[in-house]
């Protein structure tokens, strides 16, 4: 028999999603769904608005997700899921998880009102935004999630995006929902734990999921995970969760890397001057300090 030491897998082996989907090479969003469905299992119904995933899942009559997929209008991921979760409740299928799965455009921009409504009502659903920081499906146009300094087709090099990306997590925390978290495809154990945790909580849950897009960010498909990991290692995208208003930073990076290491891998930041990179570094530092203060003030150990 096999004498090798068996490695204990921390990620469920069972695959819900099929490999025959239509994502680009190195797509962070397809990996994100694969992990999410490992965490949630087959008893899940997903609403997908206009976004990359409306294509990734496959055209009629194909579907890669392996669960019921409700394609819905751009701004309706949350409101469609509200309808589904109420139907499930009325039809006696409370064990089914209702998932809204939208891109940053469908969440930070056009779908924000419906999301706010569902959150305020406390509808029993998990809303996950897979954030690739622009309208990628329509060909890389800026959204309110596009970070300062980024090139997109509507913020061309000479007129790159000025101003910070919207802080969607704090917007959702302000709704007083039971669970809000960030997650990153480069940290699958943390991601899966958070989705499983969200599944066990009744009410509206929100996850901000970081999912690089090689096509739009202009980096080689092979380094998607590297780029994603650097986002957290540089504190550009810290991993934290807010459970019933209690902040917890899930990963404190010991040797924080300079933000330049993250930026230089991506063509969308290639035009940035040293001054701009310094400015972005300062902003990242400020945001991190703010988060640390929030954890101090509203964390488990706060008084």
């Amino acid at each position: 028999m096999n004498s090798e030491k068996k490695v204990k897998l921390t990620i469920p082996e069972h695959e819900v999603m099929s490999p025959g989907h239509l994502a680009c090479q190195g797509c962070g969003a397809s990996l994100a769904m694969r992990y999410a469905l490992k965490a949630l299992g087959e008893k899940t119904i997903v609403s997908i608005p206009a976004c990359c995933w409306a294509v990734i899942d496959g055209p009629f009559p194909y579907s890669a997700a392996g669960i019921p997929v409700m394609h819905c209008a751009f701004e309706t991921a949350a409101s469609t899921s509200s309808g589904i979760t109420h139907a499930m409740s009325q039809l006696g299928q409370d064990d089914v998880t209702t998932l809204a799965w939208a891109g940053d455009g469908g969440t930070f921009d056009i779908g924000l009102q419906a999301l706010s409504g569902a959150a305020e009502r406390g509808d029993n659903l998990i809303y996950i935004v897979y954030d690739n920081e622009a309208y990628m499906n329509t060909g890389i146009q800026r959204s309110s999630s596009t970070p300062h300094g980024a090139w997109t087709t509507t913020t061309p090099v000479k007129h790159y995006k000025k101003g910070p990306k919207k802080n969607i997590v704090e917007i959702m925390v302000a709704h007083h929902i039971p669970y809000v978290a960030t997650a990153n495809i480069a940290y699958p154990e943390d991601l899966i734990r958070k989705i499983k945790k969200a599944k066990e909580i009744k009410g509206a849950k929100f996850l901000h999921l970081y999912a690089p897009c090689p096509t739009g960010w202009k980096h080689p498909p092979a380094i998607t995970i590297k780029v994603a990991r650097l986002a957290t290692e540089t504190n550009v995208f810290p991993l934290y969760e807010v459970t019933d208003g209690v902040y917890k930073i899930n990963k404190v990076i010991k040797n924080v890397k300079p933000v330049e290491e993250y930026l230089k891998l991506q063509g969308r930041f290639r035009h940035l001057s040293k001054e701009e990179i310094d400015f972005i570094q300062q902003e990242v530092n400020k945001n991190w300090e703010r988060l640390v203060k929030l954890e101090k003030a509203f964390g488990e150990d706060s008084e």
């Binding site: 899942d57 055209p59 009559p61 194909y62 579907s63 019921p68 394609h71």
Partner: peptide, 8 residues
Amino acid sequence: PRSFGALT
């Protein structure tokens, strides 16, 4: 499981 309203 089926998908509804997919790209057509």
